[in-house]
Design a binder for these strands. Structure first.
Lengths: 248, 248
DNA sequence: TGAGTTAGTCTCATGGAGAGAAGGACAGTA
DNA sequence: TACTGTCCTTCTCTCCATGAGACTAACTCA
């Protein structure tokens, strides 16, 4: 392999045009029954003062590690506590003029988390906060497009994966799970049918054998507790009600 | 906005570590009832002589334009003839050591095309060819992973989008469409049920009003011709038979 | 002309999904 | 304590999508 090592030694990485690679994270959670996204306020140009998705340049690390690092920085969570947070690659945005400084290609990641503390109180990440996704200010760069892609991915993934369990605690009730679907899909769901459906999908949830300590805030019986099962795909899927408009 | 323009003038793009951005294309087509992928033989180090997905560095263009350009170069197709080819972003691969030369982040694209001529006879793209996806040699870089991701995406997208029509000509029979599903999914399909299903999904196909000139090669009546309808999503979806193994 | 093949239609059994309702268990209030 | 309203959980009924199988008619090839 002498030819190859010679080649590698003579290779000049600067021969290619400078392109920066960043990660941006669409971090979603549910607070007060509404879907929220994590946004930070930009302190620097360009778009100073505008809200943006948390993100930054990729260092000597994998893309996923970069996304985890950015998420940890902005939420104030320690990386080791990121375990229960679902993280997946969303898409890559690289239009030549999406950043006025230079060519920046951004790999967007999507994160789902159970309700997290307000990052404002976290100290370091000063100007960060959770915003309801249906009431988001205009964002910097093309982050509005990235957010839209993240929301669509989240809505779609609830259908055929047990992702909703990433939004709730380790033990949860069927009603809590239903609230997740209702918040992400922004749809009312038939409690009885949802209950039957969730329990009928193999591996979606498994019973803990206990119930909540007390009934709901406004009455009602104690609910049985479940934890996430071992299914990676829901079969059959929980299809969201499809509007004709979506199809064409 | 003087502050911002001052900032942009003083900005030094070289301040960030050099990272190259490439696109790689998983181009799929169907030949002789089998799913094929387009591969090129690398002439240069690293991985000289190994097969790889067609791809290259991104220039002053959008990522999708780069993918189209690479695809056109390797297939010998003129860019204006790429119209009927479906192209979508697949995922981005950026592990620090995936390319021994330098940090290379690759945005992978997925392309579906009707049967194309053999690129070997196209002249320019000398060492390119179509390989059956279930009989692919070991690939350069992490292109094996990229191909696997592309196959899974293709199989999944057939379920809920009219993507299969991108594999056939402008006018096609239901049997041809069924052959696409059978090839991509590598599954036998019940002809009667498939027929009923395809015609029952609104906007999937629309009748041309004519039939094939003659029956099948081994007999049978003439088949009615259809063209792609205006649906962007299939509802209800054509779900592939799910094996229990896939679920866990 | 006959045998074999295939497009298209149909029937039947099964099971999932939506809608509605009922049985309790529980919280809050009078 | 009694009452009211909430809501978790289960059941029933109906409709529809799906899989399996069969049948007819049109066509090719020998």
């Amino acid at each position: 392999m002498t030819a190859e090592s010679d080649f590698l030694e003579a290779y000049d990485p600067r021969a290619f045009p400078a392109t920066a690679v960043t990660v941006d994270v669409v971090a979603l959670t549910i607070r007060d029954g509404r879907l929220h996204v994590l946004l930070v306020e930009r302190g620097e140009h360009p778009y100073a003062g505008r809200n943006a998705l948390p993100g930054g340049f990729v260092r000597q690390e994998t893309l996923e590690e970069a996304a985890k690092r950015e998420l940890a920085e902005e939420t104030g969570l320690r990386p080791e506590n990121l375990g229960r947070i679902h993280l997946e690659q969303l898409a890559t945005f690289g239009d030549p003029d999406r950043d006025p400084r230079m060519r920046v290609v951004s790999v967007a990641y999507l994160a789902f988390a159970p309700s997290l503390p307000d990052p404002r109180s976290g100290g370091d990440a000063s100007a960060a906060g959770w915003f309801p996704v249906d009431d988001v200010p205009e964002l910097a760069f093309d982050h509005g497009d990235i957010l839209a892609a993240g929301l669509e991915r989240a809505r779609s993934k609830l259908e055929y994966t047990p992702l909703a369990t990433a939004f709730v605690g380790a033990e949860f009730t069927i009603a809590e799970l239903r609230a997740v679907y209702a918040a992400v899909w922004d749809e009312e769901l038939h409690a009885g049918n949802f209950h039957r459906k969730v329990l009928s999908v193999p591996g979606f949830v498994e019973s803990v054998g206990a119930t909540t300590e007390r009934g709901g805030e406004r009455g009602g019986p104690r609910a049985r507790l479940y934890r996430a099962g071992d299914a990676r795909l829901l079969h059959p899927a929980l299809l969201r009600p499809t509007r004709e408009d979506d199809v064409r």
